[in-house]
């Protein structure tokens, strides 16, 4: 279907979902991932659980992470059992996700 078609309500792709969310992206990566720690992780729990789908497994068993479209929910650090894999902070004041229909 064409890109100009209004957003549908069913069969919505993940990118279409994320395109509805307002982000004010800050300069600082408020979450960082240590791919070396992830390489020895057997669960990769963050990959399926992150509601924004920001954890991408790489071919060498690591993780590629981009903080820009994050809901700041906390799911990733709660499901991660590997000490030191994640550093998690809130974005600087005023940056990050802006919900208009929460």
């Amino acid at each position: 279907m064409s890109a100009t078609e209004p957003r549908r309500w069913q069969g919505i792709s993940f990118d279409e979902r994320m395109a509805t969310v307002d982000f004010r992206v800050g300069q600082r990566a408020h979450i960082t991932v240590d791919a070396d720690v992830c390489r020895s992780c057997t669960t990769k729990a963050c990959v399926s659980a992150c509601p924004a789908n920001l954890f991408a497994p790489t071919a060498d068993g690591g993780i590629l992470f981009n903080y820009e479209q994050c809901f700041e929910c906390g799911t990733c650090y709660m499901v991660c059992n590997s000490e030191g894999a994640l550093t998690w902070t809130y974005p600087d004041g005023g940056f990050g996700v802006v919900f208009h229909n929460g």
Partner: peptide, 23 residues
Amino acid sequence: LTAHPTIAPLLRGSTLREYSAHL
């Protein structure tokens, strides 16, 4: 859920405004 036969007719024709998540 939105495709379930009981729920789908309630949402038919709507447009998605926002997706969100929270613990």
